[in-house]
Write a protein that binds this DNA or RNA. Structure first.
Lengths: 230, 230
DNA sequence: TTCGTCATGTAATGGGTTACATGATTAC
DNA sequence: GTAATCATGTAACCCATTACATGACGAA
């Protein structure tokens, strides 16, 4: 039962839940779709995949066109290894998703969780959002206290750094407030698009009632060929 | 020459530059004044101190009760091992400060540098701020590109996460713009990159005046006594 | 043919935490 | 005298990176 981190394991299971993939593609997805905040290297990915297989959460399927298995794999062609989530893996992922222990509200852990909110039930989403918020509010308290204590001894730049840091946290709290509000009011209705680009007509805001907020990719085409074409 | 990280080493040298301290207090300073963004444990601190001593950048002064009673008047607690920056250590710190290699613009590395801007010459400050900004702008480019490529395949939550992430980066860029602006207008009389070593230009240099940074009061000698309180 | 990308892996190393072990000093 | 804080350290582990090693495949 080697535990191999939280985040990487979690993210792998979450991505494979959508569709089977091989390692190379998995990494790309980790570092683009999810990886705005985190980048993983092969040196962590492949060993992690191995332990996940060992735990029975994934199975390796030799790649799509299983040409001839006669060709000795040791010296011959190296087959793609497609990983697929097992039933146990699915179960395990659900379990991880619903765990709202204190670890779940760390920066990275929260971000990973949030990235899979589309596969998360509403009450768990609420718990996570609120847990994150209260975590940040604790942080703010500490920062304020520390600042009050040391303000005089700090030079302008240190002060400015702290001020900016606090503002960032406050800003995230406001963001969470909006999200929580929008979860409460039932549908995912984000604030008016603050992005200056006028090009996001594609998603919500269809008269207040969308099909539902998660909007997973229905009729998912597992198209493992051209993801993230450069 | 064990290289023992960048940040921790850097921060220790920077803090000890202001005044000698023992490990316990050093850690508190790391985790409050500086540690808004980063927390270190004794398990990293003490070994690091050892290697810094081994490198000749610090010396241990066994605290002995003989230390000036003015140095720690409030608690009266005498330290066991007080670390003091050597001349070589000072020199090494200056060298680190003026290094503006690509590593210097990482999140944590930049924050640590910024925290010691009070001991940094203006031209280095400018280089660091601008370096950081262009680093962030690269990051933004990548995020935008990635988002443009994958927008259709992402569910609302992932999209929202990315949007929020980008906004955070954009916000930091604006912050940097203000800082750079205020450095420029702060006092642009003379650049004088010629011979900064002639005078001890490092210690004070509170050049701010009216730059746009919050108005400061002079942070003269930080009394190395109590950081305590709650 | 050679180069760039796809694709999988391992060994060495790095940078850090946790848990543990020890003891001095102060506050009550 | 005992509990809390101050104070210093070590050993075991954790998670991930870097650099390396291998090899297939398509395109120039």
């Amino acid at each position: 039962m080697s535990r191999r981190s939280g985040i990487l394991e979690f993210a792998i299971l979450g991505l494979l839940r959508e569709s089977p993939m091989h390692g190379y593609e998995l990494r790309k997805r980790l570092n683009t779709s999810l990886g705005v905040f985190r980048a993983f290297s092969y040196g962590s990915l492949y060993p992690c995949l191995k332990t996940l297989v060992a735990n029975g959460w994934l199975i390796e399927e030799s790649g799509g066109a299983a040409e001839d298995p006669l060709a000795a794999p040791l010296t011959g062609r190296r087959a793609k290894i497609v990983y697929r989530l097992t039933a146990e893996g699915k179960e395990h992922f659900e379990e991880l998703l619903s765990q709202t222990g204190p670890d779940a509200y760390d920066d990275e852990s929260f971000a990973a969780r949030f990235a899979f909110f589309g596969q998360t039930s509403r009450d768990v989403r609420m718990r996570v959002l609120e847990g994150r918020r209260s975590r940040l509010e604790e942080r703010l308290e500490k920062m304020r206290a520390s600042l009050a204590r040391t303000r005089e001894r700090l030079d302008d730049y240190t002060l400015e750094l702290q001020r900016h840091g606090m503002e960032s946290v406050e800003r995230e709290v406001r963001w969470l407030n909006e999200l929580i509000e929008s979860e409460r009011s039932g549908r995912d209705r984000r604030r008016s698009p603050s992005a200056p680009s006028g090009d996001d007509a594609a998603q919500q805001d269809t008269s207040g009632e969308t099909g539902g907020l998660p909007r997973h990719r229905d009729s998912t085409r597992p198209d493992p060929s051209d993801d993230t074409a450069t």
